[in-house]
């Protein structure tokens, strides 16, 4: 393996080499099929482990884990109250008689979206599965997996560029998450889930999930939740742009 150490190979596999060393390792790998095969297998292992266990990230957290004395009451586990108090903002408001299951489903949306935001927005190396450089592929892929045509809104006018997106397991099937970032590195996510309930529309609702602010609404078959660590007014301005683009 010449001066290609096993440590180099692992660090290469895990993306932990600096650029100069990575280039050197790549050059040597070109002449070392055994080492190349090792890297391939190890990367497959990494991906298989993530594929197997990452769905846990989107499972609802069991009540008993939130029941610890000091955690109780701090986190709106039952976001029902927050959901119920969300006010209509005049966009497509329709009065709606909620059955309990609907109600629970609607309340779960901001919480799931906020958890997904909290998990992926701080991610430095892998914030998204598919980057904005493959935007067409990204949107087609997520549309196909959700079984509904999706759009990735353009938020340039609010200073946010698309970073990319990922597929997440939701309560009732796959969910799409689009991530955006501004020049300061601030991130927001648009979480889109497909509802199997009857199509309907709701107004914007607001929920403060710990530090994460969430505006959410249901538009036909799709539930949307825009999450960010920012004040309500700034997020509302972006949510309004998103809504207008999705409903031209």
């Amino acid at each position: 393996m010449s001066d290609l150490s096993v440590t180099d190979l692992h660090a290469y596999t895990d993306g932990q080499l600096d650029d100069a060393r990575r280039v050197q390792v790549e050059a040597r790998l070109a002449h070392d099929s055994a080492a190349t095969e090792s890297v391939r297998v190890w990367r497959e292992q990494n991906e298989a482990l993530r594929a197997l266990y990452s769905p846990v990230l989107n499972e609802p957290v069991p009540q008993r884990l939130l029941a610890a004395r000091a955690l109780r009451g701090r986190w709106p586990y039952y976001a029902l109250a927050a959901g119920a108090m969300g006010l209509g903002f005049g966009l497509g408001w329709m009065s709606q008689s909620y059955r309990t299951d609907r109600f629970v489903e609607a309340a779960a949306l901001p919480r799931r979206a906020a958890v997904a935001y909290a998990v992926y927005a701080p991610e430095v190396r892998h914030p998204v599965e598919v980057g904005a450089d493959q935007q067409d592929h990204l949107v087609k892929w997520l549309s196909k997996r959700l079984g509904h045509e999706l759009k990735a809104p353009v938020l340039k006018q609010r200073g946010f560029d698309l970073v990319g997106g990922r597929l997440l397991p939701g309560g009732k099937g796959p969910v799409a998450q689009f991530m955006y970032q501004d020049a300061m590195g601030q991130r927001i996510t648009l979480y889109v889930s497909l509802s199997d309930a009857e199509p309907r529309d709701t107004a914007f609702r607001f929920s403060q999930e710990d530090k994460v602010a969430v505006f959410y609404w249901i538009d036909g078959k799709l539930g949307y939740a825009l999450s960010g660590e920012m004040d309500r007014a700034s997020l509302l301005a972006i949510a309004t742009v998103v809504y207008r683009q999705l409903n031209p």
Partner: peptide, 16 residues
Amino acid sequence: SAEIVAHIPRLRRYAR
């Protein structure tokens, strides 16, 4: 403690 709560999904994934 709310910051700790935000890490629970990751702790659960690793623990699983």
